[in-house]
Amino acid sequence: MNSSSEEWAGRTKRYLKAELKRAGVGYAELARRLNEKGLSETEGSITVKINRGAFPAWFLLASLDAIGCKQLRLEDA
């Protein structure tokens, strides 16, 4: 199956949102945690990144680390 970049962006967005929900972490709390790691993010900047579904790999990995997610399961994405 050929997947478009829009489909992958949608999958990635849904995956990150699901992991945030599982961890009980909202965008404001994620911003706080990322700032503690030296990454300058606000609730607003996170909202925009996640809603458009187009964010860099570093943001995905840093976010997952910040919420304590230690495994990336592609079958869940």
Score class of each variant (00 low, 15 high):
45 S>F: 04
52 R>F: 07
52 R>C: 11
16 L>D: 02
39 L>D: 06
30 L>G: 00
69 C>A: 15
23 A>L: 04
19 E>V: 08
37 K>S: 12
67 I>Q: 02
75 E>C: 06
57 A>C: 10
15 Y>Q: 07
26 G>N: 07
24 G>L: 00
29 E>S: 00
74 L>R: 07
73 R>P: 02
19 E>W: 03
33 R>K: 05
16 L>S: 02
20 L>C: 05
58 W>C: 06
9 A>I: 11
68 G>R: 02
55 F>R: 04
10 G>I: 07
25 V>Q: 00
6 E>R: 06
28 A>D: 04
42 T>Q: 04
69 C>R: 15
6 E>V: 10
31 A>S: 02
59 F>V: 13
51 N>R: 12
36 E>A: 06
63 S>V: 06
10 G>S: 11
68 G>C: 07
41 E>L: 07
21 K>Q: 11
60 L>K: 09
61 L>I: 12
48 V>S: 12
72 L>M: 12
59 F>W: 12
19 E>K: 10
76 D>S: 09
66 A>S: 04
38 G>E: 08
5 S>G: 08
52 R>T: 14
2 N>H: 15
22 R>M: 04
31 A>P: 01
19 E>L: 11
70 K>M: 11
30 L>S: 00
6 E>A: 12
23 A>I: 03
35 N>R: 15
8 W>T: 12
50 I>Y: 00
76 D>T: 12
66 A>G: 02
65 D>I: 05
9 A>P: 03
72 L>Y: 14
27 Y>V: 04
50 I>R: 01
9 A>Y: 04
31 A>T: 02
41 E>Q: 14
41 E>G: 03
24 G>D: 00
4 S>N: 13
67 I>P: 00
44 G>H: 09
31 A>V: 00
76 D>Q: 14
35 N>P: 07
57 A>F: 14
3 S>V: 15
21 K>V: 05
25 V>R: 00
58 W>Y: 09
51 N>G: 09
53 G>V: 03
20 L>P: 00
59 F>R: 09
68 G>D: 04
16 L>G: 01
2 N>C: 13
43 E>P: 03
53 G>E: 04
2 N>T: 14
15 Y>K: 07
16 L>Q: 03
47 T>E: 14
29 E>L: 03
61 L>W: 11
27 Y>M: 08
56 P>V: 14
41 E>W: 15
70 K>W: 08
23 A>V: 03
23 A>E: 01
32 R>C: 03
45 S>C: 08
3 S>R: 13
60 L>Y: 05
46 I>H: 03
9 A>Q: 09
11 R>K: 13
12 T>Y: 10
49 K>A: 13
2 N>P: 10
32 R>W: 01
68 G>N: 04
41 E>N: 13
26 G>R: 05
14 R>A: 13
41 E>M: 13
54 A>E: 11
48 V>I: 07
67 I>H: 01
1 M>D: 14
64 L>H: 08
71 Q>F: 15
64 L>A: 07
24 G>Y: 01
64 L>K: 05
35 N>H: 10
48 V>Y: 15
55 F>I: 06
74 L>H: 09
59 F>N: 07
7 E>C: 05
30 L>C: 00
47 T>F: 10
46 I>S: 01
9 A>V: 05
2 N>F: 15
77 A>G: 10
8 W>F: 10
33 R>M: 01
55 F>C: 03
65 D>A: 11
63 S>I: 04
13 K>I: 05
24 G>H: 00
15 Y>E: 07
77 A>P: 06
34 L>R: 01
4 S>I: 11
29 E>I: 02
15 Y>H: 09
